[in-house]
Design a protein around this nucleic acid. Sequence first.
DNA 1: CGTTCCCTTGAGACCGCTCAAAGACCGTGG
DNA 2: CCACGGTCTTTGAGCGGTCTCAAGGGAACG
Lengths: 249, 249
Amino acid sequence: MPKTAEHLTPTRCADCPLRPLEVFRERSSDVNFLQDFKAGELVVSPGTSILAEDSKSAHLFTILSGWAFRYRTLEDGRRQIINYALPGDFIGLQASLADPMSHGVEALTDIVLCVFPRDKLWNLFVNHPEIAYDITWLAAREERTLDEHLLSIGRKTAVERLAYLLWFLFDKARGVALVKANKLELPMSQLHLADTLGLSLVHTNKTLQKLREKGSIILDGRTLKIVDEEALKEMGRIETVVPARRPLI
Amino acid sequence: MPKTAEHLTPTRCADCPLRPLEVFRERSSDVNFLQDFKAGELVVSPGTSILAEDSKSAHLFTILSGWAFRYRTLEDGRRQIINYALPGDFIGLQASLADPMSHGVEALTDIVLCVFPRDKLWNLFVNHPEIAYDITWLAAREERTLDEHLLSIGRKTAVERLAYLLWFLFDKARGVALVKANKLELPMSQLHLADTLGLSLVHTNKTLQKLREKGSIILDGRTLKIVDEEALKEMGRIETVVPARRPLI
DNA sequence: CGTTCCCTTGAGACCGCTCAAAGACCGTGG
DNA sequence: CCACGGTCTTTGAGCGGTCTCAAGGGAACG
């Protein structure tokens, strides 16, 4: 269960600090409707679950600030991290549409979420096809990201996977202005990375050393600096890139 | 490129042979609109690509009959099969929404596809929110399936992965009446299975032997018979099941 | 100053990989 | 009817990438 919501001074959609960012498409009309759609804000601290596995959520969320991750676990505790969510990412669609939710979502940092009631979703499809289309577009884009992750976990070596993941996170964070001077503050531990890559913690650590030795990244604590982006992309066998520009719900 | 289309006698949506199946939800109205949305049928033979990697598709498809698979490849030839598509499955949404397509889709058997022009999609969102909602629902469901696959490839052992995959295919095929007397004719080679599991061909074969020895499946040529379904599900660590009942576009 | 996480490193085991080759099956053409 | 090539399946052998187990060090925090 989420920590108690703290409704301080909710951001008005028209004043959304994310919208001016280049990665988000302009939305001429309908911002007012989004305002109506929005039920409030939710503040969550690190380690707290936003959506629990096997529950049915009554809400959809857009991340206003902070990092989260989506995961699945097996009964014996093995965990697979499916994807990460950053500001502007829309979460909870699966939980709202398909029956009981199968994945969990957990906060990595302090997070502020915009909350949308799921029961207004149908209303939105009827009255605001533009937004409905955007939501579908985002779902297709997420699917594509998962394709990429599957290719990575299924067919790449440990070094390739790690290079891919670091670049992926870096590029994603860059889109929402979290990268300064080619440096990014990563909020996750090596265990999170391991659970994303399908590797063990120990091997992830050793693979990290190898990447460091090659010199294209510097990872000091949790500060990631990309020294040679092209080299990193090559090591990660990154051939196509998911388009950055997207709608903001 | 798809083989030349053979427009014989296109099935009318109202007479769709799939719709009576239990797995598909009833659709009271709008079947007539679907008829308008449908541009024709396409017949494709095994091994032919339906959607090429890195192309932008002008069409959306629903499979009327036959099997296909969706995959991604690396430049050096490594291939990851992302998912399989059977009758009633809707494909091409990613290719239509997100820019250049990143995955390929290839026919495993002779296939008949319903073809929908992508440029009518927006029209559909405006005039038929019910269908738009269904499309989004299907996208969320596919995402969930990919979550499951990621968990499998990332965190399960070879035997677990294979048991999971065989049950997954079996259950999916059962939904569209392709299973008779607990037997299913699989259209794919062990290389396809290997490329789905993220394993090598040789190891996939050896893992198959192990599964046979345990006695819960019989695989004679490409005929899969499930002897003990519960045992197979346990071996595959299948804990939650993607709901079968779904809309048919 | 003790506890708790997290990162790091070493050692050995094992799962899955590659290389190699043979057998089964099938369609084709001589 | 048989020879042939192609694709797919099967099996063996040995290598190596990744795993588990184990232990120590560092930083943060009460």
